[in-house]
Amino acid sequence: MDLLRLVAGELRAEIVPEVGGSLAGFWTEGGGHRRTHWVRPADRQCIELRHPLGMSSFPLVPFCNRLRNGLARFEGREIRFPSNHPGNNSPHPLHGIGWQRPWTVDHASRHAIDLSLQVEASPAWPWRFLAQQRYELDERALKVTVSVTNQDDAAMPAGIGHHPYFPHPPGTRLSANLAAMWRSDEELLPTVLETGEVVDRLRTGAVLGELVLDNNFVGWDHAARIDWPADDNGPVRSLLMRSDPLLAYFVVYSPAHADYFCAEPVSQCTDWLNLLPRYGRGPVGGSRVAPDERLAASFTLLPSLT
Score class of each variant (00 low, 15 high):
Leu208Met: 09
Ile226His: 11
Val207His: 13
Arg140Cys: 13
Val144Ala: 08
Arg203Asp: 09
Phe166Leu: 14
Val218Pro: 01
Arg110Cys: 12
Pro123Asn: 02
Arg237His: 07
Leu115Phe: 05
Phe129Arg: 06
Ala224Arg: 04
Ile113Asp: 05
Asp138Arg: 06
Glu197Asn: 08
Pro167Tyr: 08
Val192Tyr: 07
Pro167His: 06
Asn150Phe: 06
Glu139Asn: 06
Leu117Lys: 05
Ser184Asp: 06
Asp221Tyr: 00
Ser238Gln: 13
Asp152Val: 01
Arg140Gln: 15
Val207Thr: 13
Thr145Cys: 02
Trp127Ser: 11
Trp182Pro: 02
Thr191Asn: 04
Ala121Val: 06
Val146Tyr: 08
Ala131Tyr: 07
Arg173Val: 14
Ser116Leu: 08
Leu178Gly: 03
Leu142Asn: 11
Ser147Tyr: 04
Arg134Lys: 07
Met181Cys: 10
Trp220Thr: 02
Leu137Tyr: 03
Leu193Pro: 02
Pro157Leu: 01
Ala230Arg: 03
Glu186Lys: 00
Ala158Val: 06
Asn216Ser: 12
Glu194Met: 14
Glu136Cys: 14
Met181Gly: 04
Gly219Ser: 01
Arg110Leu: 14
Glu210Asn: 10
Pro164Asp: 10
Glu136Phe: 15
Gly161Asp: 02
Val144Asn: 07
Glu186Pro: 01
Ala179Leu: 08
Trp125Met: 10
Val218Tyr: 00
Ala108Tyr: 12
Arg128Ile: 12
His111Ile: 14
Ala206Phe: 01
Ala223Cys: 12
Trp182Ser: 02
Gly161Gln: 03
Ser184Met: 09
Ala230Asp: 03
Thr191Ser: 09
Arg183Trp: 09
Ser238Arg: 09
Thr204Cys: 01
Gly159Asn: 04
Asp152Tyr: 03
Arg203Cys: 08
Glu197Met: 10
Val198Ser: 06
Tyr135Thr: 09
Arg128Ala: 15
Gly159His: 04
Ser122Gly: 14
Asp106Tyr: 02
Ala112Trp: 12
Ser122Val: 13
Pro164His: 11
Pro167Trp: 06
Val212Met: 13
Leu188Asp: 12
